[in-house]
Design a protein around this nucleic acid. Structure first.
Lengths: 183, 183
DNA sequence: TTATTTAGGTAGCTAAACTAGTAAATAACC
DNA sequence: GGTTATTTACTAGTTTAGCTACCTAAATAA
């Protein structure tokens, strides 16, 4: 395991090294830096991990509250968004969005329909197709959940100064670029 | 749906409003702000979403490369981390970490064992229990993957100035706090 | 008008979770 | 010290949610 970019790294026997950087004992060495700087960078990485974990926890909570699996929840979110856009959702379109087969989508719609979350209606123009409509109650429920999360993020971003926002935007974009680069 | 914090929000009919804030047409109104500020905040939110998506993509890539499902990969990561900490992993401990039953863990270990990723060894002190050890090849492989991701994040954080890092740390921590607060 | 494609559904299969119950080892209690 | 309770991993059988293959009706292309 050698350097893969401009940072040499090592992730092993971390517990033997005084510069432990996160709760899971991963270690990145960067010899040109002093300990204080490494400690600060470590706090960034811990922040990333902590945020990811809290996001997962929130998503799990809302799903288990509505007794839905991940795909079914994703389907409902898609339906809410599509309704906002006045777009018609068909089983085929849903299958494409969720990356599952149309057969699995049939089962998914059976589940959501049985639970009273959606109804299958005739498509206004294509008599082969269906129009999936989310029920009023479920629409309000999902919209509220999504909106709450969104409002919280908005709130956090709103409290930053414009300059701080640019810093955060740059950081997030670099993280995304770094993650998607396969060298 | 009324205000839940200090930001009133609305997530509906977004397409009818000029201040659309993200690709999924969710909308947060904040009447005290001008459009430029809202646009900037929107870029923060888009950055968050984009990063999440790229993280998922990377995780999926590494899993499909090793032909593992999410739980199995999580198990291997846990084994690597535990090895770094010189901690013994038992099937029971693994079940607890993964939030699955011990029966499911037995099957999981069968899969990982058949693929040559782990071996079941006798526990050094408890003759009922097992000690799960990750094979050298798999250990190196997983460690490398995790290390690479980690190194990239480290690299991005390292390129920030100390002041920028504090901004990012504060932002991430506030996001985590906001997500985990259930009011 | 005929042939092909498209949309959604059915049937049956599989992976990976679950619950219930088992044998062996260990811990707790008189 | 011997009996009882608990813990550990496992087996067996069930459930959930995906898949492929195939079907019918409707729309579209030749």
């Amino acid at each position: 395991m050698s350097a893969n970019g401009n940072i040499p790294y090592r992730v092993d026997e971390a517990v033997l090294d005084p510069r432990i950087i996160d709760p899971h004992q991963e270690l990145v060495e960067y010899s040109a830096m002093d300990d204080a700087e490494i400690a600060q960078i470590t706090r960034v990485l811990v922040g990333i991990r902590r945020w990811r974990e809290s996001e997962q926890a929130v998503s799990f909570q809302s799903r288990s509250h509505m007794r839905l699996n991940e795909t079914d929840m994703k389907a409902l979110r898609f339906l809410v968004v599509s309704k906002n856009q006045h777009a018609i959702v068909t089983p085929g379109g849903l299958a494409e969005h969720l990356n599952i087969s149309t057969a699995s989508t049939t089962k998914l719609l059976d589940r959501l329909s049985a639970a009273g979350h959606i109804t299958r209606c005739p498509h206004p123009t294509d008599r082969r197709a269906l129009m999936i409509t989310i029920t009023a109650h479920t629409h309000a429920q999902v919209r509220d959940t999504v909106g709450r999360i969104h409002a919280r993020r908005f709130d956090v971003a709103a409290r930053l100064t414009p300059a701080e926002r640019e810093t955060v935007i740059g950081f997030l974009n670099e993280l995304s670029d770094a993650a998607s680069t396969r060298e």
